[in-house]
Design a protein around this nucleic acid. Sequence first.
DNA 1: CCGGATCCTTGTCGATACTG
DNA 2: CAGTATCGACAAGGATCCGG
Lengths: 107, 107
Amino acid sequence: MCPISTALDAIGDKWSLLIIRDLIIQGPRTYSQLLDSPERISTNILATRLELLISLNLIERTKPQASSRNNAFQVTNRGAQLKPVIQALGHWASRNLTDFHSDMLKM
Amino acid sequence: MCPISTALDAIGDKWSLLIIRDLIIQGPRTYSQLLDSPERISTNILATRLELLISLNLIERTKPQASSRNNAFQVTNRGAQLKPVIQALGHWASRNLTDFHSDMLKM
DNA sequence: CCGGATCCTTGTCGATACTG
DNA sequence: CAGTATCGACAAGGATCCGG
């Protein structure tokens, strides 16, 4: 199978890359901090995505089973390697999508 | 707003990048050729995505209004600039997701 | 309060049948 | 061949509730 297709099956949804972006750029974040990201993910979606990303070994909990409180999430080595992808995407968007919203209005 | 978020709003769905991948790697493709991609997109979804990508100026029709038949789609300049993103994603997947399906089985 | 789980509504996807 | 129409299934979103 095509690696692009495989990658998109794993992280091609609406939220996964945004979560990973937060964790890469800002370092370990708690559940609440991720909820407060400007994109306003809802609680159930965030919990589901986090579990999925953990099962794919892209992120992990910082304090495995400590107090179940104030435990944060961080990217694993494998997840951190997505940084070039995110950078390339951000670079492309900066150069080509500054007029994105005006494009949308024409629809 | 964050450029990553903007980019994902535009092409962060399941199919857009796969279509662009086909058009970048294989060159201009007709509707039927895109339908025959191994990922098996359905007809209505493909039509919707193509219109969306055209409205974003990421792809275009090769023969504007010729015979309405045998007209193909190709990436625009803006769309072609996604190539580094796709390559980065493919590279990452090749290195990290060869065991993706076995990871899924553990769930 | 924090980290979720649950319920319910809404919207989007996707398969198939159908049309010019 | 290049789409459009229809409809069911499922995922996302929002609000609320619960345990520690």
